[in-house]
Design a binder for these strands. Sequence first.
RNA 1: CGGGGCGUAGCACAGCCUGGUAGUGCGCUCGGUUUGGGACCGAGAGGUCGGAUGUUCGAAUCAUCUCGCCCCGACCA
Length: 490
Amino acid sequence: MSKGLPKRSENYSEWYNELVKRADLAEHSAVKGCMVIKPYGYAIWEKMQRALDDMFKATGHQNAYFPLFVPKSFLEKEEEHAEGFAKECAVVTHYRLKKNPDGAGLIVDPDAKLEEELIVRPTSEAVIWNTYKGWIQSWRDLPLLINQWANVVRWEMRTRLFLRTTEFLWQEGHTAHATSEEAIEETERMLGVYATFAEEWMALPVLKGLKSANERFAGAIETYCIEALMQDGKALQSGTSHFLGQNFAKSFDVKFVNKDNQPEYAWATSWGVSTRLMGALIMAHSDDNGLVLPPRLAPVQTVIVPIYRSEEDLAVISERINPIVERLKSLGVSVKYDADDKYKPGYKFAEYELRGVPVRLAIGMRDLENGTVEVARRDTLSKETIALDGIEEKIVALLDEIQANIYQKALAFREANTFQIDSWDEFKVQIEKGGFIEAHWDGTSETEERIKAETKATIRLIPLETNQESGTCVYSGAPSKQRVVFARSY
RNA sequence: CGGGGCGUAGCACAGCCUGGUAGUGCGCUCGGUUUGGGACCGAGAGGUCGGAUGUUCGAAUCAUCUCGCCCCGACCA
């Protein structure tokens, strides 16, 4: 048992906040709304980055880097885009400080006012499409498939560690294509990459779909998304992929000459996932004892704790364990042998549990005599004593089993918390309990807004793969062609 | 922006109402005993009480102002 971690059932958000801090993932910084990602949390993010980056490269993308600052005039060019982000921009107005002539410290030098304000990027469409103007002339320059790993700033009113911070880390893909069809194909391809990553690496089942017009990215023709269900019954948008049409090409005058020697505007996509995925990972799997990490993203997949009374005992145990550590490493398992004398085994057990290490081995003199080892798995909290011989292969198999089990558990949770609702009364009752609600919707923004105003539920997505099933809108009673997914969300 | 809370040792907090030697737990240092689910004993080190001003013989404590952070809302691709 971990000391004093709040219970999910009693106060979910306090549980989340405490867990993030206690598991050493992140902490609040001295700067409002901004967090410090600590080494253990960053190690998980790095594993996510690595896996995603490999997937981007495998689908033909290259990394590049664009400026942190966006001149205000660039941001203004795409009107909807500008309007969508205007309310949450950090603005640089000066470039110099000076000694305070009236006292101690520094003041902003009034003589150092910028001619044009710079916006700290909330996203990079503007600066990137301004750049693409110089890169794209001919159909031969297309498709242009670029990704950037970066930080962005969105001045949200209220923040939460990982889920919504003023500054956050993400990747943003920005591609340019010769045809609408190609761009849509790209948009859908990257949504698929995100879904695959969520399911295979994060062990997080996600729904794929389209956003309604209200929820669409500012400046997009169509926004695709993946949505996951958290343990408190709220939805979390975990990734988005946008078909931007020719909006940005027109705003930034990015034209190419096609094979018929005719000028055309390029077609665009953008897609991103952020450190918010860390929040999804934490909330989807963890329990009242702490973090539960899927093995594929765990910085330490297996920890080995020796139990000993004397230095001599430890030497004997280490002699037996060291080759096992080497063998595990050669099998690609990230393993830590924790022979640190500073803490007792009980402390270590609790600590590794809190940090979500998938597999823990404990071995003492008693085991050495019996040729056994105690194997504890984090996902089920179960322990068993098994033969030490051949332990390496068993661990490799066990890690796979845990990865699959965590996914199945999350999937079962989502299925148990997905409801088809056909009456407004039932809708209002169910939304209080949480979960995904599949209901008919008449397709109008007005209805969507009224539902939101009355229940705080939003349309999370319009499913991509769905049985076309006609019905009547759960709110207005007007005809509907398919069910959409409602939920309260983060 | 509204509501609430907090700012005192590295961390978590008490003390404030009723002004008078700045405390407790964890952590840290040293010594010893311990080690199969967060060990114990002993001895130590460590604080401009967020900041400013005022009241007072005297302010962590009272008053005024101010800065900052957190939580709940509103907001949010």
